[in-house]
Design a protein around this nucleic acid. Structure first.
Lengths: 138, 138
DNA sequence: TTGAATGCAAAGCATTTGCATTATC
DNA sequence: GATAATGCAAATGCTTTGCATTCAA
C-alpha cells in the first residue's frame, strides 16, 4: 500500500513524503471531492499539521500530473478527487452534502454537439454538476 | 426608458435610484454576464462611484426578485445577467472571453432523467457551462 | 550535497457584515 | 418622518506568492 503510493508519487515526478502520502490516503478514503481546507483538516487525524501552502502546492502538482481532478460545485471552492480514468459528474445533496457520482457521457455527447452546432465553438471543457435532494433527504 | 426601469425596480419592491438605474443599464448593454467588480467599474462611465457593498446588495436583491440570475463559470466569481424568461447556458471562449448563449433544454432533459435514474436524487438545480474556442479564435 | 519540499508571513481578491449617514417615498 | 439605500471600515474565507529553512534522494 505504501509502496504503491510511493511509486504513484514518484510516477508524477515528486518525492515521496509522509505528508503527501497522507494527502493521498485522505483522498482515497473520501466519499466525495474534498477542498484544500478539508484535506488539511483530515490529515490532522494522522497527527500531521501541514501548512496550507503545502496542501495547495501538492494539489496543483497532482492535478497537473493528471493524478487528481478539480471538481467545481460553483461555491467558489475548488474540490479534488482521484482521477479514476475518466472525468466524472456529481449529484450533490443540498441537505446532507452527500455526493453521488453519475455517468452521463452518452447523453452529454448530444448536448455537446448541440452546443457546437449553435455556437460554432470548439468545446474543450465543460462544467456539469447537479444539485438536489438525495433519496435519504426526500 | 427611464420610466420602464423605474417601474421595473419598483416592481420588485425597491426604490428607484440613479445608482440602481445605472446598474440595470449596464446589465442591459452587456454582451455577457458581468461580475460585481465589473459592474462597479462599468458604472464609472456614468460618473457614478457606488460602494462595492451597494453593488452586492443590489445584485442580491435583484436575484431574489428574479430580475437577474447568477451565472457561474467555475472561477470563483459570480456573474449576473438579466433573466429573460428562462434559465440560460453559455459557451465561453477561453481565448477572447466572448460569451455565447445556447439553448439546450431538450438535450439536457435526457441528461437530467439519467442523473435521476442513477442517483435517485430529486434535482433542483444544475451547473452547466461550456468552455472552448469560439469561431473567431479558431 | 543539492534541488525539491515545507513552513511562515503577508498579500490578493471576491464577498459579507455592522454600523453610521443619507436620500427616497 | 419613517424606512430603505448607501457609504465606510473591517473582517472572512479561499488561494497565492516570496523567501527562508529543512529534508529526501
Amino acid at each position: 500500500m505504501k509502496g504503491k503510493m510511493a511509486s504513484c508519487l514518484q510516477s508524477f515526478g515528486t518525492r515521496s513524503t509522509k505528508t503527501k502520502r497522507a494527502f493521498l490516503s485522505v483522498l482515497e478514503a473520501a466519499q466525495g471531492p474534498l477542498s484544500a481546507p478539508e484535506i488539511q483538516a483530515a490529515v490532522e487525524a494522522a497527527r500531521l499539521h501541514p501548512n496550507k501552502t503545502t496542501v495547495y502546492r501538492f494539489l496543483d502538482a497532482a492535478v497537473k500530473a493528471g493524478e487528481l481532478s478539480v471538481v467545481d460545485f460553483g461555491d467558489g471552492v475548488k474540490r479534488y478527487e482521484h482521477t479514476h480514468g475518466a472525468h466524472h459528474h456529481h449529484a450533490v445533496c443540498t441537505s446532507c452534502r452527500a455526493v453521488t457520482e453519475v455517468t452521463i457521457e452518452p447523453q452529454l455527447e448530444k448536448v455537446m454537439s448541440e452546443v457546437t452546432r449553435q455556437s460554432g465553438f470548439s468545446i474543450e471543457r465543460h462544467l456539469v454538476e447537479f444539485f438536489g435532494r438525495c433519496k435519504a433527504c426526500v
